[in-house]
């Protein structure tokens, strides 16, 4: 067993896990942050995307102990302080960018990472960036619309 201490959504957390535990398992099983989903076992689907030290990471691609001391952000930390939906989350609801909701946490976390790097992405750039996030429900069309709308809102606010 290893003891892992990290910061998740601004709060420091410590828990023991097996050395082979993945970060995705640690978040779900040890910290009960079940918003991070696991949709595959080959690091393809992107349902488990979180931010580790500001970078979008598929949390199934690293061991929990590799996140020792890291600053992790998950879908549970994306809402505003008053509990209302954040800009990207709100855009996903407004534009029907989700159906079953399973890929959605990873999509939102990837979208946030994209917009941090590129505040005004083209449709092509959005589709290209989302290549590592699979959605089976939406055909991606309204996800693209949602991200474009969120980008516009975020640009207008700065």
């Amino acid at each position: 067993m290893v003891t892992v201490t990290l910061t998740v959504n601004g709060q420091e957390k410590t828990s023991d896990c097996e050395g082979r535990s993945l970060l995705s398992d640690f978040l779900r099983d040890n910290l009960n942050l079940t918003g991070t989903h696991v949709g595959c076992d080959t690091s393809q689907c992107g349902a488990c995307v979180v931010h580790v030290d500001g970078e979008a990471v598929k949390s199934c691609t690293m061991f929990a102990w590799e996140a020792q001391g890291a600053d992790v952000a998950t879908i549970e930390g994306m809402a505003e302080d008053d509990g209302s939906l954040g800009t990207i989350q709100q855009a996903f609801q407004d534009h029907h960018g989700l159906q079953c909701g399973f890929c959605t946490p990873g999509m939102v976390m990837s979208a946030a990472a994209l917009l941090k790097k590129n505040p005004d992405p083209t449709e092509y750039e959005i589709r290209d960036y989302l290549e590592g996030n699979i959605c089976r429900c939406t055909g991606y069309q309204n996800i693209v619309h949602a991200i474009q709308a969120a980008a516009q809102t975020m640009r207008a606010a700065t």
Partner: peptide, 12 residues
């Protein structure tokens, strides 16, 4: 239902 899915509060 989107609100719970978008905040990680879905219960699968």
């Amino acid at each position: 239902e989107d609100v719970r899915f978008l905040t990680g509060n879905g219960r699968y």
